Computed example of a mutant assay.
Amino acid sequence: MLVSAKQQAMILPLKRPGEDPTAEAASGLRSAALQALRDNIQAQATQGSTQVQESITGQATQQVNAAAAISDNVDEAFAKTRVQLQTTASSASEETSSALMEFKDYMSKTPEERLRDSILEEMGITEEEYEAMPPEKQLAVGQEIAQRMQDKAAMAQVEKAQDSRTDGKNPATDMFLASL
């Protein structure tokens, strides 16, 4: 059997509009459905954009409220810190003035009075306690203070004598240098 290489053309009869009522009805339904679908999509897009706008507006409002709350918290913290600093500054100035008064009192004393105060402190007795003691105890404490003052004076003289013998040189340093 021989097959022809030429293809035979098929000719379909052309239908004119208006000749096939079912085709026209289907075409009309299709275009109406497409139009309804387009309208529906457009309505959803409009509704969606409105919802997106409302969502964005809500988020922006929340962020503004959060920023305002943070700003209020910062202002409150700043106010508290300022009050604390003012309170601390006033108490610090009181402490500074009391320390300054103590220093001035100390510097106004003679070296003997300073030594007496340091000995009383070593003994664990305050000036007020010393003043409140009966005269016999004051005399005993006074003798102890005098004895300690003499001991310290003697120690100072011994140190001064050692310094003058070595002409300001340290004997330990001299021995170290000699060993080299």
Rank of each mutant, 00 (worst) to 15 (best):
Q150K: 11
I125S: 05
E113H: 05
K137C: 03
Q35H: 10
L12I: 14
L12N: 15
S71T: 00
E131D: 13
L29G: 13
M155F: 11
L37I: 06
K6Y: 00
R114H: 05
D20V: 15
G18F: 01
T46H: 01
E102W: 09
G168R: 00
F78G: 07
R30V: 14
T173M: 08
S27N: 14
E129R: 08
L180K: 06
R16V: 15
I119F: 04
S97I: 03
R38P: 01
I70C: 02
Q44A: 00
A99M: 07
E102V: 10
A161G: 02
L14C: 08
R82T: 13
L34Q: 13
T61H: 00
A172N: 15
I56Q: 00
Q86C: 05
M155K: 11
D151T: 08
K160L: 04
E131V: 04
Y106S: 04
T110Q: 09
Y106F: 11
T166P: 01
I11T: 06
A161Q: 02
A154C: 09
A9C: 07
V52A: 05
I41A: 09
K109F: 13
E136H: 09
S27A: 14
E129S: 10
P171F: 05
A36E: 08
I70D: 04
D72P: 05
N73F: 03
A156F: 03
A77R: 05
S93M: 11
E144F: 08
R38W: 01
K6R: 03
Q47N: 07
R116M: 12
A89G: 10
L14E: 14
Q84W: 06
V74Q: 10
P21H: 11
I56G: 01
A45H: 00
Q143D: 06
G28F: 12
S71Y: 05
S118E: 03
N170L: 03
E131R: 13
Q157P: 04
T87E: 15
A156W: 01
T50L: 02
K137T: 10
E127T: 05
A67S: 06
K152G: 11
E127D: 10
D20I: 14
G142I: 02
K80C: 01
E94L: 09
S31G: 09
T96A: 11
D75W: 14
K160G: 11
Q59D: 02
A66W: 01
A92F: 13
D151I: 11
Q150I: 15
M133N: 11
A99V: 09
V158N: 15
R16G: 15
K169R: 06
A36D: 06
A146W: 03
A89S: 12
M155L: 13
K104S: 12
L14S: 07
R165E: 11
I145A: 00
T57N: 06
E136A: 08
E24N: 10
Q162F: 14
L120S: 09
I125A: 01
L37D: 13
K169G: 08
K152E: 14
M101V: 10
A68C: 02
D163A: 10
E159V: 09
N73A: 04
A69R: 03
S108W: 07
S108Y: 06
G124S: 03
M175G: 08
E131T: 04
T61Y: 02
R16C: 14
A178P: 04
I145K: 01
L34N: 13
A156Q: 01
D39C: 04
A132K: 08
P134F: 08
V74R: 09
A92D: 15
K109R: 12
